[in-house]
Design a protein around this nucleic acid. Structure first.
Lengths: 101, 101
DNA sequence: ATGATATATTTGCATATTCACATATAAATT
DNA sequence: AATTTATATGTGAATATGCAAATATATCAT
C-alpha cells in the first residue's frame, strides 16, 4: 500500500511522529534505546552530555507523541521505545543518511 | 550498523531530513511522487487542493533540504524525489502509522 | 519590442511552535 | 529534613506556517 492511501488524520499522525524524532538529541536518545533497552533520565543526560532539564524535556516530547513509554521505579523513571517498529524508521533514516546527500 | 554509530554531523543531517518531511502537506506531496513520478507545482496544488503559494513554499523547503530536485521546462517546473531510498522512510512511516498508535 | 497570459517564486505579515538554559517545584528515598 | 532524581516553568530567541499580494519567468500574439 502507498502512503497516498493515507487519510488526512493519518498524515497528521505520521507528521507528528516524524516531528517527534526530527531533532538530533531525540535521534541520539532513540539510538540508545535500541534492542529494547530501558534507560533513566540520568543515564541519558550523562550519555549525551546535555542539561538534565533539556533531557527531561525531550523525553517528555517523545512520550507525549507516543514514541516512548515510561515507568517510575523509586526515584528513577525508565524510558523505552513504545513500538519496536520505530527502529524501522530510524534504521531507514540512518541508511539514507549514510548514503550521504 | 546502528544509528548510535552516527556522528553529530550525521544526526544533524538525519534531523534536517526528518524535519523536511515532518509535515502533513509535505508527506502528501511525497506520496504523489512515488514510483519516480515528476509533477508540476500546478498539478500538486490542484491534487492537494491548497494555495498555490503554499505549495510552492513547501516544495522549496523539500528542495532546499535535499529531498526533491526540480527541472524547469518552459513555464512549468517539475519536481521529483532526489533519492528513491526516501521511499524507504516514507513506507516505514506509513507502516508504523497503519499499525495505529 | 511590447503587452497579455500562464506558471512559479518571493515577500510580508501574523501567528504558532520549538528550543536550551536556569531555576523552581515535585516525587521518592533515606 | 536532607538528598537524589525527575518534571515544570519562565524566558528569549529561533524556526515554522498559511495566506494574500507582489514579483519573476517563460511563452505567445501582435
Amino acid at each position: 500500500m502507498k502512503i497516498s492511501d493515507l487519510k488526512a488524520e493519518q498524515l497528521e499522525h505520521a507528521s507528528n511522529m516524524l516531528k517527534a524524532i526530527a531533532h538530533p538529541v531525540r535521534i541520539a536518545i532513540l539510538s540508545h534505546l535500541e534492542d529494547g533497552k530501558k534507560l533513566t533520565v540520568t543515564q541519558i543526560y550523562e550519555l549525551l552530555n546535555i542539561e538534565q532539564s533539556t533531557t527531561s524535556h525531550h523525553l517528555g516530547i517523545l512520550k507525549d507523541k507516543g514514541v516512548l513509554l515510561s515507568q517510575r521505579e523509586g526515584k528513577n523513571t525508565y524510558y523505552y521505545l513504545k513500538h519496536s517498529s520505530l527502529f524501522s524508521i530510524i534504521n531507514c533514516v540512518s541508511k539514507v543518511t549514510m548514503e550521504g546527500f
